[in-house]
Design a protein around this nucleic acid. Structure first.
Lengths: 206, 206
DNA sequence: CTTTTCAGTGAACATCCGTACACCCATATA
DNA sequence: TATATGGGTGTACGGATGTTCACTGAAAAG
C-alpha cells in the first residue's frame, strides 16, 4: 500500500485518521459519548497509541472544531470578495452555508451539537469562531448599507442573522432531505425580513 | 418525617425525586452522560429500583421534557390572555421567558441541550413543543397585526422569533450573570427589528 | 384475617472504560 | 555504522456501567 513515507508523514496521516474516525463516531452521541477506545479501534491502533496524538478527548474536540470552521471561514471570505452589495452578501452566504452543510454534514452536526453540549473549552472555541463571523458580518453591513448606525446596533443585527443561521443548520441536520428546500426558502425569507427591518430600524421611535 | 402516605403517594414522591436528581446531574454533561446508577445514588435508592419508574434513561428524558415545558406553556398562555396588541405579546413574552430562565435554569439548560444533543425521541418531543409555541405565536401575529398574510408567511416570521429566543436562552445559559442585561436588551432589539421587518414585508418586491 | 400486589433490596454478571507500564523496532540523527 | 528518537504494541489494573434474578416486607385487596 503506502510506501516511502517519512515518520512525520505517517504521524500526520494517523492523526487525520483519528479525526475522521472521531467525527464519524460522534455523529451518534456527540463528543461526550465518544470513547477513546472506540476511536482507536476504528483507526486500527491500540488504545494507548491515541495519546501520541492527543492528550485527551477534549483536545481532540478542539482540533475538530478548528477543522470544521476552517473550510467555512475560507468560503465566507470568497463570498465577501465576490459580493458588492448587502443583498449579495446575504444571498451568497446562505447559498454557501447550505452547500457546506450538505457537503460536510458531519462537521456541522459536530459544531451544532458541541456549541451547546460540548466540553467548556470546545464551547468557548466555537463561541469565538461564531463571534468572529458575526463581527465580519457586522462590518459588511456597516460598509455596504448606507447608514450611520452605532457599532452596537450593527452587532445586534449581525448577531440575529448568525443566530438565525445556526438555527437553520440545526433544522437541516435533523430533518429529512425532503424538507431541505422548504427550510432553505424559509431561511432566505427570514434573512430578507431582517434586512427590511434593518432598513427601517432607525426611522422608528425607540 | 413523612408519615401516613399511601403507596401511590410514596411512588409519586420517589418518581419526582428521580426527576429532580436527574435534572441536577444532567446539568454537567446532559442526558447522554447521565448514568442510571448516579441518579439512583443521589435519590437514595438502589439502581434496580429505577426500573420501577422508568424503562430507560430516554423515557426519563421524555418526562423531563414534559415537565420543562409545562410551566412555560402555562405562563405563555397567561401572557397571551393579558396582552391586547402584538407589541405587548412580544414584550411580555420576552419578560416571561427571561424570568422563567432565571427561575428554572436547570430546566432550560436541559431543553437547550437535549433539543440538539439528546436522544431522537427527546429531540422530537422538544421539536413538537417548540412547533406548538411557534404556531400559537403565528396565530397571535395573524390576529393582532392588521395584515393579510398567508399562513406560510406567518409561520416564517414566528419561526424566526422562536429561533431567536432559543438563541437567547442558549446565550443566557453559558454566559456570566453580568452579561445578562446586555443579552436581554439585545434580544428585545432583535425582536423589534423583526417586527419592523414584518411590518414592511409585503410592501417590498419579492 | 388471608392473600395479593409491588416498590425497593442486594448480590452477581459481563462489558466497557481510561490509563499506567514495559517493550519493540523502523526511522532519523550523529 | 552506532545511537537516539518516538509511533505503535500488549498486558494488566481498578472502577463504573446496565441489567439479571430471586428476595422482602409493608400496604392494598379479598
Amino acid at each position: 500500500m503506502s510506501e516511502e513515507l517519512s515518520r512525520q508523514e505517517r504521524k500526520e496521516r494517523t492523526r487525520q485518521a483519528i479525526l475522521d474516525a472521531a467525527l464519524e463516531l460522534s455523529r451518534e452521541g456527540g463528543l461526550s459519548t465518544l470513547s477513546l477506545r472506540s476511536v482507536a479501534k476504528r483507526v486500527g491502533i491500540v488504545p494507548t497509541a491515541f495519546y501520541r496524538h492527543f492528550a485527551s478527548v477534549e483536545e481532540l474536540g478542539l482540533a475538530l472544531t478548528e477543522q470544521s470552521f476552517g473550510a467555512l471561514r475560507e468560503m465566507l471570505r470568497e463570498v465577501r470578495r465576490d459580493s458588492r452589495d448587502i443583498e449579495g452578501v446575504i444571498e451568497n452566504s446562505v447559498k454557501t452555508l447550505v452547500k457546506n452543510v450538505k457537503e460536510r454534514q458531519d462537521h456541522f452536526t459536530f459544531v451544532a451539537r458541541e456549541m451547546i453540549a460540548g466540553p467548556t473549552l470546545v464551547r468557548e472555541a466555537i463561541g469565538r469562531e461564531l463571534e468572529l463571523i458575526e463581527l465580519e458580518l457586522a462590518m459588511d453591513i456597516g460598509r455596504l448599507v448606507p447608514t450611520q448606525w452605532s457599532n452596537d446596533d450593527l452587532r445586534t443585527v449581525a448577531s440575529l442573522m448568525v443566530t438565525a443561521m445556526t438555527g437553520v443548520v440545526q433544522s437541516l441536520i435533523n430533518s429529512p432531505a425532503t424538507a431541505e428546500d422548504a427550510i432553505v426558502r424559509r431561511a432566505e425569507s427570514q434573512l430578507q425580513m431582517v434586512v427590511i427591518g434593518v432598513a427601517n430600524w432607525k426611522s422608528q421611535d425607540r
